[in-house]
Structure formats: structure tokens, C-alpha cells
Design a protein around this nucleic acid. Structure first.
Length: 437
DNA sequence: TCTGGGGTCCTAGGACCC
DNA sequence: TCTGGGGTCCTAGGACCC
């Protein structure tokens, strides 16, 4: 087999299979090899499916009410989301990777890019196999690994490994033959960064595989698919445009707390009480990341699916008098925003509070008239948050950095009619009990 | 009856300036 | 009988990802 340019970088991506479902199965071996799904907040829609659930035709993001018959008929096991548990397993997953690889980029709750450029002398396949097995042994999470000359090719290799069981979850596309295999045998929609809209456009132009795409003229791609499309083209050709980004340098640019309400809300006072809760959550998230926002925004909307009501959606944003992540500041300003966008007699279904223009809360940023006030305020915020957490009995939580890492900081899981699994690793009263005969 | 939440990046177009 | 050109900055909205 001919090996492609050894000097080049080697990218790997490792991700968990059906992560949330796998988390549930990790603590409940009885539900392995069965159709299992995890639902979003309010048990609204499906956000994770086991292999068997996928085989039944259950789609990602599908509303739960649409599949209730299917669920009953095939004894599909449905869980309400238990994000604090998933966040903890996510932390453990990433911790294990950092044991084996010096350069890791946490890309999401369940996947990381790894720099394999220095691993030329290893038998890569058996090394990766060993890691995959260790992860399974330690946290019982099955994974897939893809390797390629660029991030996009690694993603494609990972996708290929997932679809073709015979590779046992590892595909290394570092020879011309293997690279051609993932380019020709994957579909265009499997390419990272090519979404629904673009797929439709490309198919109209007779482009069905990644291989078809790289035959195209780069000016045509740039014109029709913007700079992003051009980067994808280069990456598929083996020219790396996306580096492994160290998570220490990476910084969040925005933070949002948003919820759909189980029941619609029309009264301003009720929205205010929800909003206060959002402020606590947002403050906590910002303090965890040591960030302060310059801008604060709020949006409200009614139910877009309700055909009997006129759809209402509005938002507003303000520049804060000075950057602050204290609950008091967030509350005062968000309540002002609510006044602006609230409208009587609207059945509100969703609200979101977001912070923009985040910067590091280094000492001195608040060196102004408000300094003393801010300091006190900050301590107060922390106190309120810890009280909140105490009452929510979540115990200790870990801080994770990652561009798309967002599930770790929720502290009131909504009550629900579906089963919620235990906080096995987080709350002492919910730790599993094992009896040895 | 019941439709998630949290992110990033890019572009077009308007406001404004000289 | 006639309405510049070029630049910056900001924002809304689209597309995509997990």
C-alpha cells in the first residue's frame, strides 16, 4: 500500500455512538441491544436513538407524539433527558482522551479531534483499537474513530466506519486507496459542513458524492457555496484549512439560556419569574467560564406550530452600562428588555436570554465607579447560585471547555411523565447499589 | 393534547461618512 | 433634462453543527 506524504499532518476524530442513549445503557445493561430513545426538554422530541430505534424509522428531532404508537408497538424505551449525567460522562470521556493524546480539541459533548501527526511510528490501528477498548471498559461508552489528512477527511472516515460494521468502528484513510473509498462510497450529505440546503443545490447539479464535489471548479464552488464551500473542497482534496484548536485559547463568544414552556404563558409576572431563573442560570454559566458580557438580549415567541394563533416573535438587546455577570445586573436589564418586547394576550411558548460580546473577567475590567458594587454583587451571585444548586441537590459539577459544549450547566431538570434515570455519578443518594452474594 | 437547546460563521444590505 | 464612488461599521437572517 502506498502511503501518502508522511510529512503531512494526520487528523483523527473520535466520537461516541448515540451518546445520550449510550449513557443510559452504561448504567442499565438490560436495555442494551434494544430500541432506546432519549427525549428533549418537556419530552418534546427525540434527541438520541439507539441503533435499533433508528432501524424502526425514528428520526432525529422527531416530535415524540408522532411516534407514540410506534413506541408502544415495539416496546421502545424512552428516557427524559438527564443532562447532568451526560455532562459528567462527557467529562470522563474527554479526560481519558487527554491521557493518550497531547493535542486534543474538544469539539462537542461527545467528540474530540486529535492530532496524530506525531504518531507515525506507532501501529496506528492497534493503538487506536486499544484506546477504544479502554474507553469502553472504563465508562462503557462505545466509540468510533476516523483518521485522515484533514479534519474533513477524518470526519468522513469516521462516518464511513459508523456505517460499515465490518471495520469495527475504526477507519484510517491515509492511503490513496482508502481515501478514494471514503470519497466515493460516502454520500455528499455525509460531508461535514454540507447541510440540507446545499445538498439540494448540489444534487441539482449532479453532484452526489464527495468525489463528485472535488471534480468541480473552485471558482464555481466559491461563487455558489461561499468561502465555507471552498474550504470544504480544499479539505476533501487533502489540503488542510482547519487546524486543531487548543481549547485553552478557545473562548466562548455567546451564551444563551432558553426554554420552551410546557404550557403557554401570557402573564408578564409569570414570565418575570421564569426570567429570574434564567438570570441565575446565565450568571452561573458566565461565572463558570470567567466571562462578562457587553450585551444582553432577550427574545420571546409564541408557538409557531399553532395554526389558530397569529405567530408572534420579538427580541431586543442592550449594551450593559458595564460588563457584568452578576445576577443583579442581569435581572435589572433583562426585566427592562422584557418590558419592551412583552405584549398582552399573546400565548408565549418560548423565551431566551443571551449574552454577547463576552470577554474574560480579568481584574480591572470593572475598574470604575461600580467596582465595589460589582465585587459585592459577584459574591452575592455566587452565593445565590450555590444555594440554588444545593436545593437542586446536584452536587459537584465540572467545568468543561468546548465550542459546542452546552449541556453541562442545567440544574433543574424539568419534571416529566417519562422515566428519568438516576444521577448515578453526581448525587450520593442516587449512586448505584451493588450487592455481592 | 403533545414539536429542544446551545453554539459558530458568513453574507447582504442599510446607515453613515467623506 | 439632471442624481458618484468608495469605504467602514453594524445588524438581521440564513446555514450549519452537535
Amino acid at each position: 500500500m502506498s502511503s501518502i506524504q508522511q510529512k503531512n499532518k494526520i487528523f483523527g476524530i473520535i466520537d461516541a455512538n448515540n451518546f445520550y442513549v449510550s449513557c443510559e445503557q452504561a448504567f442499565n445493561p438490560k436495555i442494551k441491544n434494544k430500541p432506546v430513545i432519549v427525549l428533549s426538554n418537556n419530552d418534546g422530541c427525540v434527541i438520541s436513538r439507539s441503533k435499533e430505534a433508528k432501524a424502526l424509522g425514528i428520526k432525529m428531532g422527531q416530535p415524540f407524539f408522532e411516534i407514540k404508537d410506534l413506541v408502544e408497538k415495539h416496546n421502545v424505551i424512552a428516557f427524559s433527558s438527564n443532562f447532568s449525567l451526560y455532562a459528567d460522562l462527557s467529562y470522563r470521556f474527554h479526560e481519558i482522551l487527554s491521557l493518550y493524546f497531547p493535542k486534543v480539541e474538544i469539539y462537542s459533548v461527545d467528540e474530540s479531534f486529535i492530532d496524530l501527526s506525531e504518531f507515525n511510528n506507532y501501529d496506528l490501528h492497534s493503538y487506536l483499537k486499544m484506546i477504544k477498548e479502554n474507553i469502553y471498559q472504563w465508562i462503557k461508552i462505545p466509540t468510533c474513530i476516523g483518521v485522515g489528512r484533514t479534519k474533513t477527511l477524518a470526519k468522513l472516515a469516521n462516518e464511513y466506519a459508523k456505517k460499515n460494521q465490518e471495520y469495527n468502528g475504526i477507519f484510517i484513510a491515509l492511503t490513496k486507496e482508502k481515501e478514494l473509498e471514503i470519497l466515493t462510497k460516502n454520500k455528499i450529505e455525509d460531508v461535514w459542513g454540507i447541510g440540507k440546503k446545499t445538498v439540494n443545490f448540489l444534487k441539482k447539479n449532479n453532484i452526489y458524492t464527495p468525489y463528485d464535489l472535488i471534480q468541480q471548479n473552485q471558482y464555481w464552488i466559491r461563487k455558489n457555496l461561499t468561502i465555507n464551500g471552498l474550504k470544504i473542497l480544499y479539505e476533501l482534496k487533502g489540503l488542510s484549512c482547519k487546524e486543531i484548536e487548543s481549547n485553552v485559547i478557545q473562548r466562548k463568544k455567546s451564551a444563551t439560556i432558553s426554554r420552551s414552556f410546557r404550557k403557554v404563558i401570557t402573564e408578564k409576572e409569570e414570565l418575570e419569574s421564569k426570567l429570574l431563573e434564567f438570570c441565575v442560570k446565565l450568571s452561573e454559566k458566565l461565572i463558570l467560564h470567567n466571562l462578562v458580557p457587553e450585551y444582553l438580549g432577550l427574545y420571546l415567541r409564541s408557538n409557531p406550530f399553532d395554526k389558530n394563533e397569529v405567530y408572534y416573535s420579538n427580541h431586543s438587546m442592550i449594551k450593559l452600562p458595564y460588563p457584568s455577570n452578576s445576577i443583579e445586573t442581569l435581572k435589572k436589564n433583562s426585566f427592562e428588555l422584557l418590558k419592551k418586547i412583552y405584549k398582552k394576550n399573546i400565548k408565549f411558548k418560548k423565551m431566551g436570554l443571551y449574552a454577547l460580546g463576552l470577554r474574560e473577567n480579568y481584574l480591572g475590567i470593572q475598574k470604575n465607579l461600580f467596582e465595589q458594587y460589582s465585587k459585592r454583587s459577584n459574591e452575592l451571585s455566587k452565593l445565590i447560585i450555590s444555594l440554588f444548586n444545593y436545593y437542586n441537590r446536584l452536587g459537584k459539577r465540572k467545568i468543561l471547555f468546548g465550542k459546542n459544549l452546552m449541556y453541562g450547566y442545567l440544574f433543574s431538570d424539568n419534571p416529566s411523565t417519562i422515566i428519568r434515570s438516576g444521577k448515578y455519578t453526581l448525587a450520593i443518594e442516587e449512586v448505584m447499589e451493588v450487592y455481592i452474594k
